[in-house]
Design a binder for these strands. Sequence first.
DNA 1: CGGGCTGTTGAATACATTCAAGCCCCGTGG
DNA 2: CCACGGGGCTTGAATGTATTCAACAGCCCG
Lengths: 251, 251
Amino acid sequence: MQTQPEHRPEKQTETRLRERAVECCSCGLFGLCKVAGLDEPQSDTFDQIVSTREEVPSGARLLTPRRRLDTLIAVRSGAFKLSTRPDGTQEQIVGFALPGELIGLEALSGSAYPFSVEALEASSVCRFNLTSMQLSQQHMAEFQQQLILALARQARAAQNIPMLLGAKNAEQRLALFLLDISSRLSEHGFPGQRFRLPMSRQSIANYLGLAMETVSRVFKRFHARGIIDVRARHIALADLEQLRTIASTAM
Amino acid sequence: MQTQPEHRPEKQTETRLRERAVECCSCGLFGLCKVAGLDEPQSDTFDQIVSTREEVPSGARLLTPRRRLDTLIAVRSGAFKLSTRPDGTQEQIVGFALPGELIGLEALSGSAYPFSVEALEASSVCRFNLTSMQLSQQHMAEFQQQLILALARQARAAQNIPMLLGAKNAEQRLALFLLDISSRLSEHGFPGQRFRLPMSRQSIANYLGLAMETVSRVFKRFHARGIIDVRARHIALADLEQLRTIASTAM
DNA sequence: CGGGCTGTTGAATACATTCAAGCCCCGTGG
DNA sequence: CCACGGGGCTTGAATGTATTCAACAGCCCG
């Protein structure tokens, strides 16, 4: 519920995900926390259910595949990489989790969580314990309603993925990728026009089904055309209109 | 609840989706129907909630984007194409719905359903009316539980999509595509080794981000290597093992 | 039986990948 | 504070794969 903005008065106005935690009211868990009576983060109920606010160092694995999962996890700050590696094949990144977003909803269907979740930078998360819940019938109904909402929102967000990955050429995929990250950051109160990419070029490439070199080259082309301002992982979307045009241009 | 197998004693053992409806016990709505007391398809409750079993002719649009949706739809037979066309761009197919699968779960988050849903062949569906539900508190809780399960299952299924579309080359994508269709058919009681593709090459290509010609050529290559037996839309997966190898071979 | 749509095939082009080399940034240690 | 080292990133040239365009074949439906 409290934020530590840590605003040093530098020229740097971009979002550094690890330096600023999402506010509770922008968090995907907010509805659940509210129903569970967790408006007050110091109460006993709070400690029981949102058991720990965990700090996760960069590179640490939060979850390993096939691990049974009885908590929902909300990203407070930082970023995570969700990946799988079936049968000793190459790693395949299936998505990224940004501040305010939830991890583990898929495990609600009963079976174990199928992905490896690794912190891309120093991060912090809230764990919401689903098993130790003690709610009145009335509250339980509301709680389930909130779960349904969270799931439906995620289902809707997942529908963007085919557009992202089904795009024909590299420029379109990367334009869609940047717009996706941007809108997801904005959705949870971060500036979406200027941010730091939490993932490496290699990770972007893996996720989008491209070569790392292609990602690099397309970024450079965008930069040359004045569409983005990119320097290492620092990105500013200079011309959103043009980016959207590229994203939606059928070839 | 009842099936019309229409088994003509021909040599044709493949699944023709439009000639055979999924059985209720294999349907994604089954849990919901049960809770709602709809074991008996002739009862009044049934007519009230699963209002109509609709027959949808080939090519008809079941839903149009931005349309408000207060029902869940289950595919009984046939198949549907889910697509979007933002701002007059090229159509982008975001998925297919096969017998036993649900359409419209995303609309539970409150906003309108964002896709166009079109029958790929003569189909039939069940509509489950979410607004006219009258359930005891006890049953409502169970009902919500079932909704959560259905959503979580879909969320989990959606996680396969990045693997499908993030694949680097055309052979891998098509192998994954065929395995995906196959397993989804098996899951609802249809033979997964031999079936009729409900969608055109063009649709497959659009969905996978390939050119139609590439789909055609890869199918031919697979055929030549004895991996599949393909004739028009009729497909038999002759060598599942090899198909899986191609699907998981990192390049 | 004919027409039109869907799918196939071939040749030329465009695009992304691969491999290899080098750069730059950042953190470490002197 | 600067030198050093390493990983992430960039750049270039050659290769390979998928696309494009165009023509044709096949099939289904009327």
